Computed example of a mutant assay.
Amino acid sequence: MKTRLPCEFFLIRYVPDVVKGEFTNIGVLLREAGRDDTAVLRFTRDWSRVRCVDAAADTEMLEALEVEIGARLRTSATDIKPVMQVLEDTLANSLQITEPRACLAESIPAELNQLMRMYVEPIKVKTTRLRTGRAAITAAMRSEFETAGVWPLMRKRITASLYTAPGDPMKLDCGYRPNGVIRIFHAVSLEGDLEAAKVLAFSAPQLIEGIARIEQAKLELTAIVEPARQLDDETTDSYRFGVETMQRQSIRVMTVADLPRIAETARVELRL
């Protein structure tokens, strides 16, 4: 029988009103017992529970915080205390962390998935409704990159204004630099609203020029969209227009079905 790793985990809780004491679990911090250098953090990708307790919750800020904490974990691997302090001090105690709990794990990734299912993620109810839109695409992107083990190594919510112009509000979903090329991936839903495709196409030339100037690298910008087969016949022309609009600006357009191959390429290029 394979020896299990003695581990300990902490639950990260969102507490919108510390007086009422109501909370919902939003993440898990897991590490091997006594080994700060193995610590990993994951937040939920489904914020429905948070919105139930706080309709005005800033989920984008929480997602950005996960990225920040993950980066601190990698740079402060020998001492987890600064990371814990950031969590405890964030949002005037709106984020809280539990005392450590012991567990035995087959592996850190497998145990993290199990703990997320047990304590954080909402129970999935079978439904015939098709999940669509940008949120579904971004969730699929993250899931595939996590499965490949590359998500922690990728840049997230990349600020476009670094490469375009001050004031540009665009945040690009994620990317990495394996060599002289920067690969950036951005979810674009072509269902009903083509504005996102047009905005990305408009921004592409400035992004390409800015990355060449600042990073001395070539940009490979990929838009991840829904497969055309999931769309109604009435939207076929709009879908094609969105794809062609982006392709004319040297944006590579791929679908959710291509994500496993994209993630595997990232795994190889990042040498995992």
Rank of each mutant, 00 (worst) to 15 (best):
Q114H: 13
R4S: 12
R252H: 01
R35H: 13
A196Y: 06
E220W: 01
Q247M: 06
A223I: 01
D37F: 06
A187Q: 04
L259C: 01
C174M: 14
Y239E: 02
P260W: 10
G210F: 04
W47F: 13
V86S: 07
K81R: 13
T24S: 11
A160W: 13
C103I: 15
M246W: 02
D193Q: 07
L162F: 09
V181Y: 07
V18P: 06
G149S: 03
R42A: 02
P260D: 06
A160V: 14
A217M: 00
F145N: 00
A71I: 09
R183Q: 07
C103D: 15
Q216R: 12
G133Y: 07
I184E: 04
L65H: 02
A187V: 00
R74Q: 15
D258I: 01
E244G: 07
A196I: 05
P16R: 04
G192V: 10
T147D: 12
L5Q: 11
D17F: 06
A263N: 06
V40P: 10
V19W: 05
M84H: 10
I184H: 00
F43R: 07
R252Q: 04
P166Y: 01
Y14S: 10
V243Y: 08
P100M: 02
E191I: 14
L272Q: 09
I123Q: 03
P6K: 05
L272M: 09
L231P: 09
M1V: 06
Q206I: 02
G34V: 00
L104H: 14
I26V: 13
A55V: 15
D37N: 12
F43T: 14
D89M: 05
A135K: 07
I69F: 01
R271L: 08
P166M: 00
V15S: 02
N113R: 14
Q249G: 03
G175K: 05
G180L: 10
C52N: 15
L73P: 08
E144H: 13
L41D: 07
G133P: 07
M61G: 15
L270D: 04
G27K: 01
L207D: 08
T90V: 11
V199I: 15
